[in-house]
Amino acid sequence: MISSPLQLCLVFSSLLFCIGLAGALSRSNSILVLLGIELMLNAANLNFIAFWRFGPAPSPATGVIFVTFSVAVAAAEAAVGLALVIAVYRRQRNIRLQEAVRLKG
């Protein structure tokens, strides 16, 4: 069924992505949701490296540079997200995501 290493890597990254997605959807703690999102980002990065390594010959460093940037952005996003969590915690004294619904229309 899995005919090449590339396929294996793709399956791997898909599974990681869905684990992250399921985790983000099911947990009510904001920090855990953020962790799920980090997992999803990681899965995407995995995909990039898989195709860089096993795919047709691309330019030598594009995949790597892209993933570097992605990691940097993910870090920034994690920082901002966690700052938000702290801010939300300050207002509602817990970090249950279901309670942060003030933008309800």
Partner: peptide, 17 residues
Amino acid sequence: YSRAQTGEAHGYLRILA
């Protein structure tokens, strides 16, 4: 239509998926 704006992040993510 504004009923779609539940304010819940989980819901949004679910719909996205």
